[in-house]
Amino acid sequence: MKSANLNKMTPYFFIAPAGVVLALGLLYPIAYMVYASFLDWNPSQLIGEADWVGFKNYSNLWVDEAFKESMWVTLKFAFIVVSIEIVIGLGLALLLDRNIRGISALRTIFILPMMIAPIVVGLMWRYMYHPSVGIFNRTLKDLGFESIPWLSDSTWSLVSIIIADVWQWTPFIFILCLAALQSLPRSTLEAARIDGANAWQQALYIKIPLMMPVLIVTLLLRLIDAFKVLEVILVMTNGGPGLSTEIMALRISRTASEFRELGAAAAMSNYLLMMLLLLTISMFLYNKFVEQRRQKMLALAEGG
């Protein structure tokens, strides 16, 4: 009896070190952040000297116009960039999923943007957007058009950071989609071809549905990333003009360093964390739901 118990326990013993590392490395900082979000804590104080203010940091944020605006900017930014990136990335992958000479070189060139350090990307785009010496406005002027206030107009500046982000992160989606496409079962595609499906139909009804699980994970990864993007925007606009490009990550960083309100910054981070958690969970639930429906269909098909 005893040895059977021990046997049952064995796996837990092996997992224990990893569990401890997880608790220390992952849960402790999060717990610390949650604790800090209930404090009125400025960085000149030790955490022990900070006053406990309960939910004040959280409730203050609800009436903070600047925070609400930055939340709205973040949502707008994240959904627009991820939608554009998915469309372009998937489209490119579908186009390039074939045996072209030099495809591997092409692929390497395509993923270059995401290998460049974000600060450098920000600086690069900032110079390209420069009102008088930047390449965009110089080209526009040479062609006889009016120059565009890329970074000094609140609508254009959001467009500008979206363009930069799409440029940097579309390759990420492209490369994952390409990998997914190349691992699709060839037999299904062949069957479709024999049945006379044209390229459009193959992509729409065979390839994309089969890629769904990968697409969803990719989408999720990109969304999480888009909610947290900081450096590129910091360098390009620093949130301006006005608050038009002040995404949450930037707001959090400014709250902690400029306003010296660590508690409020922690509360904002928690809101962001909750939002991302909600997004992740709903994605997983959806995935599970789709999976279950597929299983049911399969069972039905087999039964019939």
Partner: peptide
């Protein structure tokens, strides 16, 4: 910070 972003709105 608030003053700076508000002024930016006035300017742009």
């Amino acid at each position: 910070a608030d003053l700076g972003t508000t002024l930016s709105k006035i300017l742009t």
